[in-house]
Structure formats: C-alpha cells, structure tokens
C-alpha cells in the first residue's frame, strides 16, 4: 500500500484526496491493511466463504408490474434534471 496504490483505488472509488489528508489516509490504510493481515494465520483450507449469515435460499417474486409512474417525484429530487431526464455534463463516447 503506497501512494500510487492509494491513488489507483481512489480513482476506482471516484474520490480525490487532498494534500492535507493524503499522507494521513495512506498511513491509516497501511496500518489497517497490516492489521487485517492477521487473517493470513487462519487455516481456511476447504472452508466455503460465508457471504450472508442467513444460510437460506432467496424468496423471489412472480413476474408482475407493480410500479407506478413517479417521474416527477424522482426528477425533483435530482440535483439537475429537466422535465424528462436526469442531466449530467455531456459524456463524449
């Protein structure tokens, strides 16, 4: 975990670190990773990972449309929209 790694994961996370907190956060991350490195010691051969404590299977729903048009409610909560769309700065593809 160095500054370069931090800047890569920061970009993946769409975060920028300013000069004041960059060093501190890099140092914190280093320590946290060192701390979680304790896990190395555990013998996990043939142990199935546990993604959710409920070892159950999912309930599903039948294929029915239940949603109503709530366009106005949603668009008015958006930082920027017109009467039909959410708006973001032009994306060039």
């Amino acid at each position: 975990m160095d500054k370069k790694t931090v800047s890569t994961i920061a970009y993946l996370s769409r975060l920028s670190l300013n000069e004041e907190n960059e060093d501190k956060i890099t140092e914190d991350l280093k320590n946290i990773i060192k701390f979680v490195d304790q896990l190395d010691g555990a013998d996990t051969n043939n142990i199935e990972p546990l993604a959710n404590p409920l070892e159950k299977t999912a309930k599903t729903r039948t294929d029915n449309v239940t949603a109503k048009n709530r366009k106005e409610v949603f668009l008015e909560r958006s930082p920027k929209s017109n009467e039909d769309y959410f708006l973001v700065p032009r994306v060039v593809e």
Partner: peptide, 19 residues
C-alpha cells in the same frame, strides 16, 4: 464524492475497493 463524504467514510470506501 470527495466533498460529500467525510474522512472515515472515505477510508472505508478505499479499504473496500482495495480488498
């Protein structure tokens, strides 16, 4: 995201992205 989140949230997001 940088303005909206505080440092602890950022730290955890970064750790999460890393792992």
């Amino acid at each position: 995201r940088s303005e909206g989140f505080g440092d602890e949230v950022k730290r955890r997001i970064l750790i999460g992205s890393y792992v």
